[in-house]
Nucleic acid binder design. Sequence first.
DNA 1: ACTAGCCT
Length: 548
Amino acid sequence: MLQGGNPYTLAKEIHGIGFATADQIAQSVGIPKDSQNRARAGIDHVLLGATSEGHCALPLEKLKAAAVKLLELPVETIERAVSQMLTGGLLLLEEIDREPLIFLPHLRKAEDGIARKIKRLATAGVAYPKIDIERAVTWCEKKTRKTLAPSQREALKTALTSRAVIITGGPGVGKTTLVNSILLILRAKKVKCLLCAPTGRAAKRLTETTGMTAKTIHRLLEVDPATGRFSRNEDKPLDCDLLVVDETSMVDVLLMYALLRALPATSGLIMVGDVDQLPSVGPGNALRDLIDSGVVPVVRLTEVFRQAASSKIITSAHLIRQGKMPELRRAESGTDFYFIERDTPEEIAATLVRLVQDRIPKGHRLDPIRDIQVLCPMNRGSIGVRELNTVLQGALNPVRPGEPAVERFGWRFQVRDKVIQTENDYKKEVFNGDIGAIEKIDPVEQELSIRFDDRLVTYDFGELDEVSLAYAVTIHKSQGSEFPAVVMPVAMQHYMLLQRNLIYTGITRAKQLLVVVGQKKALGLAVRNDQSRKRYSGLLGSLKESCL
DNA sequence: ACTAGCCT
């Protein structure tokens, strides 16, 4: 039930579902665009802002009640607005589980479009020339000097004999090796392959692992930055016989629709991703729905090659994936997963700093700045990214008077500071999410140099808005990266974000060592909470309808 | 009282 008009309770209950853009709502209920009403509602954005999280559906009665409370307008006004929007095509009504729900038409259209295209692909024949699988595998193994595991061979066979296929699995299960093998074989058969990913970093990584050019989905579809529209579509499709999409779990319904529209009718499609990681921040749960529908063949890789099967990080990740609490008691030495119980935020923060600064470097011979990454559920709060960056900077790289420093946006940058690039810069060849360290500051030239892996990149002081401190980053941002050691605070102040996928994503970033610090209650809550599964997506329904 | 990504 709706409680006390608290927008956040409300938003949680309906899971961030809205029913139109804030502007549309404001307009339809007669509130001027920039009025104080909207500012007061703030809510606007969470509840009425439509697509900020996940979903596109909301029961009609709840919608009306919410609107009355939040906008403090008479019921009649809301009734009128809703009916106007219904007749005006801004709202559509449908039923899911016998509950009348409202859909945003543009999302509904996208869901239908995706379903139609996917079904068409699923019933079409194979896109590639006839391939002798056994011979191809042998040839491929010789060429890469890598032996494929039986599960990978089976997967390869499925991929080469299906028009569309989904390849899913956690870190280290050999998704990359499999994709490389597929590409190697198909390219030898002169199949024209295009590669893409939703983020610049993922595209760069895909380029590196395959030796082929991979682009962001936006660049592949030739986005017009002014309008946000794509020039590639059904009228001007991509030129390919196979499209490979990596990190598909991050692709929301609208982007998926845009991508599939641009896929030529004759092309194959391979979607790669980890469904257990965080769902897209944008609407829907596209990859999960595609998998659950059973319309497209799914290759599930589970065998872990990268780390020893005895790794407690890996076994815990599997347990959490299934909603089970991992073993938290103090384990034998030599383990790679520790849980340190602390109750108050102050204790959590203090313990965390001690771990990063002292205990982990001493016990595991790791560099506190280079090797250890703090991952937080949230940006705000006393144990959020912002606060911890301040504290960790003070502990790991304190102010050295007399040394050059730059101040920007309230942050002070000094040599040795750990930083993260926050937008794609194709000129510098650094991408959103790249982490490095400041190596040189030149106050005369007004320049500073940041080392990313083995590359030194120079920034004008004016370009520092592309960069923030990275002692701590959000788990969302860490998706797609791995670190030797991960320290992760978990507390009730992260309530909003405590969900299974978040914890799973955080802990699977750790390669050698994982330390979770915080409240057992919060961790338990997160592990049990798989609400992200429950986004009221219409895509699954569309996919399951039998007609074309 | 929340979490992303894309482009010139």
